[in-house]
Nucleic acid binder design. Sequence first.
DNA 1: CGCTTTTATCGTATATTTACGATTAACGAT
DNA 2: ATCGTTAATCGTAAATATACGATAAAAGCG
Lengths: 113, 113
Amino acid sequence: MTTTKRIPLIPARGRGIGKDDEELAHLAKALGHPARVAIVRLLLARGECVCGGIVDRLPLAQATVSQHLKVLKEAGLVEGEIDGPRVCYCAAPEAVERLSHLIQALIETKGRT
Amino acid sequence: MTTTKRIPLIPARGRGIGKDDEELAHLAKALGHPARVAIVRLLLARGECVCGGIVDRLPLAQATVSQHLKVLKEAGLVEGEIDGPRVCYCAAPEAVERLSHLIQALIETKGRT
DNA sequence: CGCTTTTATCGTATATTTACGATTAACGAT
DNA sequence: ATCGTTAATCGTAAATATACGATAAAAGCG
């Protein structure tokens, strides 16, 4: 029954995968769920929004939204500041721009060996 | 012992999550892994590349690379055409552009209620 | 101080992703 | 027809992601 090990031979990012690839992947992954895109869009549209306001507009439980917000915060796409008992979130457009920029740079890889 | 159900109350994309959000998320998710970004970059750089050529440049097993290629193909980011016993892959710049465009459009959401 | 409101976190179930070796399939060449 | 090469798929293990209810934590109000 051959119990295999499956620990990656190379810990991660051995030659062939650059730092930009990781940064781009990290940002892209954070936007890699429809609910998270919707959250970012909502925040961009309204400038800022209390967590509850987001929950009201999405078909997801509060806990789930909070988890998505955490992912977005970790990726730097969203910031939240405490305001009384609430937390006021806003998008970080620079981070979205950064993602856009990295993708542009990727496209411009065309031709470079 | 409280067997909970956990079937999403709303099947997916109830109000609040739009079609663009899903398309953007789908593309972003496909680029949401460093190895896949590296693959796309490599293909853009070289124009085209046989699967084996990709495997040689990445610290991953052939099976793993093949799986990543499948994800990229499904998202439309990469195309492959059979060439004898090999498969010659190339990036689909339109799809990358599409992602870039969707992100730009997202940024331009700023202010729109 | 208790009470309400708001958000984060815990616990948990299920699904998906990631990785690998082994095997299969498809082709060209012998 | 068999052999080598190349890539996809299968089987599987482990990790991560997704979703929820329940609970905790923090702040304002009475």
